[in-house]
Every structure is written in structure tokens, then in C-alpha cells.
Amino acid sequence: MAADHYPYGFLVENCPEDKKHDIDFILSLIDWEKNTDPEFRKHYFRPPLHSAGQNGVFEEKWITYGNEYIAAKELTIEPGKTVTVKDHSAYGCIVIQGHGKFGIYDAEAAQVIRFGQMTSDEFFVSEEKAKSGVVISNHSKYEPMVILKHFVSNQDVPKA
């Protein structure tokens, strides 16, 4: 069986037309110094930062921040709890652990996904709904529900 791969066009789609087959040009686009930095963690690691929470109910923390373009939060809801979560901007999210409700929708972390099978682990929240709040319930008796939320822009993102 052949390995899956992306077509060559994906690699060069943003290159000038006359450079699409110039391997030296393509390799020059890589920042070799940053990509081989032996002190990468020291220079770029950012520990998670507490964002919101209520002891024994939920915790939310920034896990990707300090960048004006992208950011991410990890939301953990304790077993049997329901929370209303508000944000200042639209976001996409994925349930990575647990099951319950995300607004009016069933939500659960996918364990095994077969080709063509639907899942209920990914959601998009509009800016309007993010500002008014999304009600999320963890229906498990024992397991936390964990959701990763990713933002393109959010005025609350901490600086580096």
C-alpha cells in the first residue's frame, strides 16, 4: 500500500511561479537556525497560564499565547458539572476527553473513527455566541471533560 502524502503543489502553492521548481529557493524559506535551535524550549516554551475557573467545577488555562495571530485554551470541566463559558471572539474547539453537551449538541471525544463515520467532537462558536456564553455539561460521573479551544484573534490573549 502506498503511503499517503500531500501533492507537490501544496509545498509550492505560495511560491512565485518561476521558483516552484527551484529547490534552493524552497529550502531558503526554512529558518534553519530556529528549527535546529538546541535551546528551543528555553527560547519559546510558555507554561500554561490560568485564565478562569471555579474550584471543583472547571479550570481554563491558556496553553498557546504570546502571538498576535493564534492562541489556544484548555478547558477542563469536572465530572457531573455544568458551566457557562464566555470569550471575546469566535473559536473552534475539539473535545479530547469525556462526554456531555456542548450547547444543545451531544459532545464526546472520539476514540476510534472509521472512514465516513460522523463524530461529535468538533465545534465552531461564533463571536456572538462566544460573548453571550456557551453552556457545557460533563455527563460523566468520574472523568473530566477536556476541550481545546483555538482562536485566530482574541483580545484577552496574554503577551509572551
Score class of each variant (00 low, 15 high):
Tyr142His: 13
Gln117Pro: 01
Val134Phe: 12
Glu108Cys: 07
Gly98Ala: 11
Glu108Thr: 04
Glu122Asn: 13
His88Met: 09
Ile147Met: 08
Gly100Thr: 08
Asp106Phe: 10
Ile96Phe: 02
Gly100Val: 02
Ser153Tyr: 15
Val112Glu: 11
His88Tyr: 06
Met118Val: 03
Ile104Asn: 11
Tyr91Trp: 14
Asn138Arg: 06
Ala107Glu: 09
Phe151Arg: 03
Ser153Ala: 12
Glu108Arg: 11
Pro144Met: 09
Asn154Thr: 07
Asp156His: 06
Met145His: 01
Lys149Asp: 02
Phe102Cys: 03
Ser126Ala: 02
Ser126Gly: 05
Lys101Tyr: 07
Ser153Gly: 12
Glu128Pro: 01
Val135Pro: 00
Leu148Met: 15
Lys149Ala: 05
Val146Gln: 09
Val125Lys: 06
Glu128Gln: 10
Gly133Phe: 06
Ser140Thr: 11
His99Thr: 02
Gln111Asn: 14
Lys149Arg: 15
Phe115Lys: 02
Gly100Gln: 01
Ser89Val: 01
Val95Phe: 07
Gly92Glu: 10
Gly92Phe: 01
Tyr91Val: 03
Arg114Ile: 03
Asp106Ala: 15
Ile104Pro: 07
Asp121Val: 07
Gln97Arg: 13
Val146His: 05
Gln97Pro: 08
Phe123Asp: 04
Leu148Phe: 13
Gly100His: 01
Gly92Pro: 05
Gln111Ser: 15
Val112Ser: 02
Gly116Lys: 00
Ile147Gln: 02
Gly103Leu: 00
Ile94Cys: 11
Gln111Ile: 13
His88Thr: 11
Gln117Met: 10
Lys131Glu: 02
Arg114Tyr: 09
His150Cys: 08
Ala110Asp: 07
Gln111Ala: 14
Gln155Tyr: 11
Lys141Glu: 14
Ser89Tyr: 06
Val146Ile: 09
Tyr91Phe: 10
His88Ser: 10
Ser120Leu: 08
Gln97Cys: 08
Lys131Gln: 11
Lys129Met: 11
Gln155Ala: 15
Val135Phe: 00
Ala130Glu: 11
Gln97Thr: 12
Ala90His: 11
Ile104Arg: 14
Ile113Phe: 00
Gly92Thr: 14
Lys101Val: 00
Tyr142Pro: 00
Gln117His: 12
Gly92Val: 11
Ser132Leu: 14
Ser89Phe: 08
Asn154Phe: 06
Gly133Ala: 08
Met118Ala: 13
Tyr142Phe: 13
Val95Ile: 15
Ile136Met: 01
Phe151Cys: 05
Glu122Pro: 00
Ile94Leu: 10
Thr119Gln: 04
Gly103Thr: 02
Val112Ala: 05
Ser126Cys: 06
Gln111His: 14
Gln111Leu: 13
Met118Asn: 08
Glu128His: 08
Gln155Lys: 15
Thr119Ala: 02
Gln97Trp: 07
Ser140Cys: 05
Glu128Ser: 09
Met145Leu: 15
Asp121Thr: 07
His150Thr: 14
Gln117Val: 08
Gly103Gln: 04
Ile113Met: 05
Gly133Met: 04
Ser137Ala: 11
Ser120Lys: 06
Glu122Phe: 12
Tyr91Gly: 00
Glu127Pro: 05
Tyr91Asp: 04
Val146Trp: 07
Glu127Arg: 13
Tyr105Val: 04
Gly100Ile: 03
Ala109Ser: 14
Gln97Tyr: 00
Val95Met: 05
Lys131Trp: 01
His88Ala: 10
Phe124Tyr: 10
Ile136His: 06
Phe115Thr: 03
Met145Tyr: 13
Phe115Arg: 01
Asp121Met: 07
Glu127Gln: 15
His139Ser: 14
